[in-house]
Amino acid sequence: MTDTDTSLEPPAEAAGSGRSGRAAPLPPDERRAAILRAVRPVLLERGVAATTRELAEAAGVAEGTLFRVFSDKLTLIAQAAFVAADPADAVPELDAIPRSLALRDRLVAVMEIGLARIETTMRWFGILHELGRIDPRPEAEREAAGRDGWAQWMQRQTEGEAEVRAAVDRVFGPDPGLRVSRDRAFELFNVLLLGTTMRVIDARRRGTEVEPVDPSELVALFLDGVARRT
């Protein structure tokens, strides 16, 4: 495998443009982001057991390229997990929901995205926990890095949640006809989303399974309630 990363670089100039040869490589930050996104599937499947060769193949680069961008495999995995677990990673999906749909259908799409995101995020947390167990650094160094990492994590989580909140607000649209404030509606929607997820997580901890709730049922509960109308 060569060090040429055709999947992470822009196409070469078309013939006749006066330029030829290899395409210019991506800027460092863009290449780093592209690698972190490309390795997600293999990490979700293999966790920390993924080899550098598997990660390089997933990213379409040589193993040497990985170590010019990341100091080691554990650093690459940790950064990939932190980025993937960023709430704002869901914003493009939320913005892609067609505004031509009825409000109920738009909210079903939001609920489906939210449930899938939480499920995947829990898997990333599991990978981060596994990384912490095998971190070869001295304990004091691990604790110091953990404190710094946690502060950055919490700041990014707060920022990401605000971006998600704004995206969901765009899904609601300018005049959704709510009988409560938008902030209250968002909180109630979040209660249903997180409560449903915690129900599944708690069952797994006890070694049992629960029947998943249909997102359309949750949205019906959110919009209509469960009491009969008189």
Rank of each mutant, 00 (worst) to 15 (best):
E54W: 07
D5N: 10
E112G: 00
A144K: 11
R137M: 12
N190L: 12
P212G: 09
I97H: 06
L36H: 00
A15E: 15
A102F: 04
L221K: 07
E13D: 13
S100T: 15
S20Q: 14
R46F: 02
T120F: 00
L107C: 01
E130A: 15
P174D: 15
G160R: 01
A12S: 13
M111R: 05
R37H: 09
E57F: 11
G146F: 08
L26D: 07
A50F: 05
R137F: 07
Q152C: 07
G114V: 04
E93K: 02
A140E: 14
L8G: 15
G160T: 01
E143N: 07
T52Q: 13
P11C: 14
L76K: 01
P92K: 04
L36M: 05
F186S: 10
A12L: 06
D72L: 07
P174W: 11
D29W: 05
G173W: 08
T52I: 05
D3C: 03
A49C: 05
A96Y: 02
T196I: 00
F70A: 03
A58E: 12
E161S: 15
L188V: 12
R104C: 02
A12V: 07
P98C: 12
L66V: 04
L188R: 09
W150Q: 14
P138N: 11
V61W: 08
E139N: 06
V171F: 11
T52D: 15
R229E: 13
F186P: 00
E143T: 11
A88T: 02
E209G: 03
P212H: 09
G195D: 08
A50M: 06
A81P: 01
Q157M: 14
R22M: 07
L36D: 00
A78Q: 02
D224L: 06
E13R: 11
V213P: 00
A34H: 08
T65D: 14
L178C: 09
A85P: 00
A23V: 05
K73G: 13
A14P: 08
L55D: 12
P215I: 02
G47W: 09
G126R: 11
I134C: 10
S181M: 04
E143W: 07
G21N: 12
R206T: 06
T6V: 10
L44G: 12
E141I: 10
A88R: 06
T65L: 08
A80M: 07
G173A: 08
G47R: 03
